[in-house]
Design a protein around this nucleic acid. Sequence first.
DNA 1: AGATTGATCCAT
DNA 2: TGGATCAATCTG
Length: 183
Amino acid sequence: MAILMSPQILPRSFYDRPTLTVAKELLGKYLLRRGDAGVLAGRIVEVEAYVGPEDRASHASRGKTKRTEVMFGPAGITYVYLIYGMYHCFNIVTEQEGYPAAILVRAVELESGELIDGPGRLCRRFDISRTHTWHDLTLGKQLWVEDRGERITARAMLRAPRIGVEYAGEWATKPWRFRLKGL
DNA sequence: AGATTGATCCAT
DNA sequence: TGGATCAATCTG
């Protein structure tokens, strides 16, 4: 007998684990955004992990600054930054407080089937901007992530180097991008 | 391939 | 305080 699972808001304990584990498990979860027009849902289909103070691709690799201190914060909060003066990028902070790590959400699939491919396009569609940084995703208000019971196997995902971090030397080659196959 | 755009960071 | 840089996207 199948167990029907009602959507579960991901708790802090989900995010407070090794970032690569959280990144893989975020595939198939749903990003939800409540706005004036109702609730928009997107199935997360691509993410990238930024892990620890040594990761030279990570904004946190040059230490704690006003911008990056959120990456050192508690798991389950958001880090949203502006890139190239034009686009926002939405990240989820992971691991224990004091350890800088986050996951960039790069693509989602809407319930209509439309693919929102790219972090800037995602933030534009979901109306996410820097004002949402430090938002707590575990409260189910405005912005949260749900488990709807879907499980993604390792062979259903593509693993590849992260995009746009060629400056990061050996860190640029780490296969810390995860994307569902066959989109 | 080149333009766009402005917040951020550090030193020239 | 100036200038290089940038976890992207669009247009050609």
